[in-house]
Write a protein that binds this DNA or RNA. Sequence first.
DNA 1: GCCCAGGTGAAGC
DNA 2: GCTTCACATGGG
Length: 305
Amino acid sequence: MGGHALACRTPPRAELLPSHMERTKTFSILDYDLSATLSSGQAFRWRRSGEAWLGVIGANWVRLRQEGSLVTAETANPVPNWDWLTDYLQAHVNLNDVLVTFPGDEPMRAAVAACRGLRLLRQDPWECLASFILSSTKQIVQIQQIVALLCERFGEPIATPPGHPAMFAFPSAERLARVSEADLRACKMGFRAPYLRATALAIAGGQFDPAKLSQLPPDRARAELMELPGVGPKIADCVLLFAGGFPSAFPVDVWVMKALRLLYFPRRRVSAARLKRFTGSHFGPHAGYAQQYLFHYMRTRGSDE
DNA sequence: GCCCAGGTGAAGC
DNA sequence: GCTTCACATGGG
């Protein structure tokens, strides 16, 4: 499926644009469950809209739709190059190459059988870090609500297609560094407000650069993240995995802890420290991917989604 | 009312 | 090193 059938969607001034500038693009990706991926608590700016998903990547309004192995993207403005999107979706990853590295135990088999097609995204490090600072002891729907308020109040407005409501980019660290703690608290983030503000100040002041995270050795990257206020081992691992490109990072939250106890150590008292050691050795080179399968499997067991 | 949510930091042992 | 507790806020 190429661009020909989509030419009618080009805006009126298309004749002034290079022919490769399109508002829509269709990608063929095997083994990709878009809904599971966008709703699995990695990223917090996606909303279901009918059959599609609406979200923001960087300064781009994006609508994504999946039909079988075809994922179609629509943006507000014509796009010369879609690399930012395929990188975000990690469309080049062959899922089978990842799944074959998982341990062949019963819990992993069940998790993969239940949500095959679940993927890891590659997110912006600052947005990911800030979002997860806001995530502690919050349900995913509430994190989405806080992030939405933060973007509406402090993010730059971005282009939307005609008839669509205003949308905003995720606010920069420099912008949030200038927001008072009270105004942050007004976004319903509670005790997390001083953490977010202090981390934004550290980044704006040059003490930490999220963009350079992926260039550091894993241990160093994790240590630097944990220097930031409000960032402990779990949130550091989320940023390493979802934004830093560190595939062995293994965030352990209450759901993953439940999965480990229930599926791997039933009827045994195992300390949290021992479970952490288990996660570091048992799940292989793509441990973080395995973690996401366990997380999503636990969260969706018993429901249709 | 109660318990829980993609935790962290500080204080206590 | 470990465990316990406070921290805001909203959903079930």
